[in-house]
Amino acid sequence: MTQLAVLALVGAAGAGWHFYGDKVGLKPPLEMLGLQAPPAQGGGRGGGPGGPVGVIVQPVRVAQVVDKVESVGTVRAREAVTITSKVAGIVETINFSEGQLVEAGSTLVQLDAAALRAELDQARALMDDARNQLVRARQLQAGQTIAAQRLETLEALARQAEGRVRQADARLEELRVNAPFAGRVGLRQVSPGALIQPGTVITTLDDTARVRVEFSVPEVHLARIRVGSAVTARSIAYGDRRFRGTVAVIDTRIDPATRSVRVISEFDNSDEALRPGLFLTVELVLEERDRALLVAEEAIDPVGDRAFVFVVRDGRARRQEVKLGLRLPGEVEIREGLNAGEPVVVRGIQRLRNDLPVRVVETLTRPTS
């Protein structure tokens, strides 16, 4: 092989090693050919003619990181019902105003009950008469002036009269439409004097002191969702305002169509800003790490599915493999491979190789969170 061919081969091998060989630990091209590299001019081992390479470093910082997933959700009232009548009748009085807060059990609408009240009065009169006859019969029993069969008949009549009274009371109660729980009534759908039928919509009632927000999360996050996890929601209707709640229920089934699980969160809504049906952007906290290690994004040297950084130790750039975690704006979390405070090269990594002498020309700092 001629000297020119050797030089060409060495040049090609050197270019390939510059871009790839150092990353995977190959020997320099001269060593591969069994030749010895000439000594560096300028004294330092591998430092080149200009001496140690100048680099800018930044210490590995410790900060809190929050791993979260974003979704969209819809506000639901904690309790919501459409108020209807059980029986037919004429609306006698309406005891609420639209949008009013009402207490549980309060009467919203009273239907005309004149006929039932008369029926109830008659039933009570019959009951009183039956009871009086029974009392007199029992008083005469001691003298054996009344047969036992007659006494049993009077007792049965008294019970029947009491049953008719209870029945009339129940029917009278059905003419009062009551609030099943405390909440805010919606728009009124009937007017006084209107004849309504069973099932006629009168109004709506929503308990919005606390609301529920339903959203879906991809199934890959299922193992990290917990009841009580923090949830943050926002709406374009309220600008930069953030609403904070917690996970209340996690569905027991995965949706086979979307491969997601439905999550229900609860939010305090004392000012009633969150209205049922409101569309929200939701952020669910999956994990919080108070002492996470962070480095600048430009310090990462990726090779395939692996990642490396250069750490300055004893005046030399040590190539260190790291395991990455959460990515933040301009920073990357390091899960394994570094310790807090270690100086990591953030400028000039293109000129570095493992164990190369370096000179720190600047140390960047960031405020700790």
Score class of each variant (00 low, 15 high):
residue 107 T to S: 14
residue 336 E to R: 15
residue 213 V to T: 09
residue 259 R to T: 07
residue 37 A to M: 08
residue 244 R to T: 12
residue 116 L to T: 00
residue 241 R to L: 15
residue 35 L to A: 14
residue 294 L to E: 05
residue 231 V to W: 04
residue 318 R to G: 03
residue 81 V to A: 10
residue 90 I to W: 02
residue 364 L to F: 11
residue 366 R to M: 08
residue 305 D to R: 02
residue 92 E to R: 00
residue 316 R to I: 11
residue 195 L to R: 01
residue 340 A to F: 10
residue 220 V to T: 02
residue 114 A to W: 01
residue 239 G to R: 07
residue 168 A to S: 15
residue 276 P to D: 06
residue 361 V to D: 14
residue 16 G to W: 11
residue 197 Q to S: 01
residue 6 V to N: 12
residue 142 A to P: 02
residue 319 R to I: 07
residue 285 V to D: 12
residue 346 V to S: 08
residue 111 L to V: 08
residue 35 L to M: 15
residue 212 R to P: 01
residue 158 A to I: 03
residue 96 F to I: 10
residue 46 G to R: 11
residue 42 G to Q: 08
residue 228 G to Y: 07
residue 362 E to H: 14
residue 85 S to W: 00
residue 203 T to H: 01
residue 134 L to A: 08
residue 11 G to C: 05
residue 345 V to I: 12
residue 298 E to Y: 02
residue 29 P to D: 09
residue 93 T to L: 03
residue 336 E to A: 14
residue 124 R to G: 03
residue 348 G to T: 04
residue 36 Q to S: 07
residue 162 E to N: 10
residue 272 E to H: 14
residue 108 L to R: 01
residue 17 W to K: 04
residue 121 D to P: 01
residue 143 G to M: 05
residue 168 A to F: 00
residue 249 V to G: 04
residue 11 G to M: 08
residue 220 V to F: 03
residue 263 V to D: 07
residue 184 R to K: 10
residue 115 A to N: 04
residue 72 V to G: 07
residue 175 L to H: 15
residue 212 R to K: 11
residue 214 E to M: 00
residue 4 L to F: 04
residue 133 Q to M: 01
residue 301 D to Q: 13
residue 5 A to G: 05
residue 18 H to D: 09
residue 349 I to T: 10
residue 225 I to F: 06
residue 320 Q to E: 05
residue 289 R to E: 14
residue 152 E to T: 08
residue 304 G to H: 05
residue 360 V to P: 05
residue 149 Q to N: 11
residue 293 L to S: 05
residue 136 R to N: 12
residue 352 L to D: 09
residue 336 E to F: 12
residue 190 V to S: 09
residue 126 L to E: 12
residue 27 K to V: 13
residue 21 G to W: 11
residue 154 L to K: 01
residue 123 A to Q: 02
residue 233 A to D: 06
residue 232 T to G: 04
residue 283 E to F: 05
residue 184 R to C: 01
residue 159 R to Y: 11
